[in-house]
Structure formats: structure tokens, C-alpha cells
Amino acid sequence: MKKLLLTTLTVLSMSAYAVPSCHNWNDGSSDPFAAAISAAEAGYAANLKVNMAWRDTGKMIKEAKKLSATPCSDAALALANKAHTQTVNATTQTSVISSSPGPRF
């Protein structure tokens, strides 16, 4: 019995570590998927407001949310992070454009 319990605990804890996107609600950390997706959504909303959004960011956010229906989905976290990175790059473009670029000649 003791051995069985130990094995179960080990497997459980191992799986928790092997899948980093699987949030452990008991260790005081925040949920990485929730953080990534909310950063992506906030960035995308800001990009849309100034007409600087990228073509696929919205689709990526939607897809990431769909994937997140599966608990601890690595793919969902990866996609949410990718969408967030797109919004960061679009924000950088926005600040370049606000200096009113002109021709190179």
C-alpha cells in the first residue's frame, strides 16, 4: 500500500513537471496559459484600435482557446505565446509609424 501510494505520488508530480503548461494550483504560481492569452488579447485589442493588427493574430487567439479545452495543452500555451509575440511586434511597428515615415529618397 505504502509503495503504491509513493508510486502514484511520484507519477503525479512527475507529470506535473514534465508538462510545464499544466498549472499546479497549489504551488502559488499563476496559470501560464491564462497569463499568455490575456496578454495576447490585450495586445491585439490595442493593435486593432490603431489599425496596426496583423492578419492572423485573431485566428491564433481563437485557436489557442479552443486547444485549451484540453487540460495542460502545450500547443495552446505555445500558440497563445506566439499570438502575444505578434502583438508586441505590431506595437513596435506602431511606434515607428507614429514618427511619420516618409520616402527614402
Binding site: W54, N89, A90, Q93, S100
Partner: peptide, 25 residues
């Protein structure tokens, strides 16, 4: 006019290109 001009010459999108990249340069 200046806003339109900035749009035309400003880089945007995943390819980081401007209208001018293709249709001017």
C-alpha cells in the same frame, strides 16, 4: 494627406513591409 503618406511608407504586418517597399522601391 500626411496621415495617408505615413500609412503608405510605414511598415506593417507580419512581413514588416510598406506599400512603398513593393510599389516604389
Amino acid at each position: 494627406y500626411d496621415e495617408g503618406k505615413a500609412f503608405f511608407y510605414g511598415k506593417r504586418g507580419q512581413f514588416n513591409m510598406s506599400c512603398a517597399d513593393c510599389h516604389v522601391y
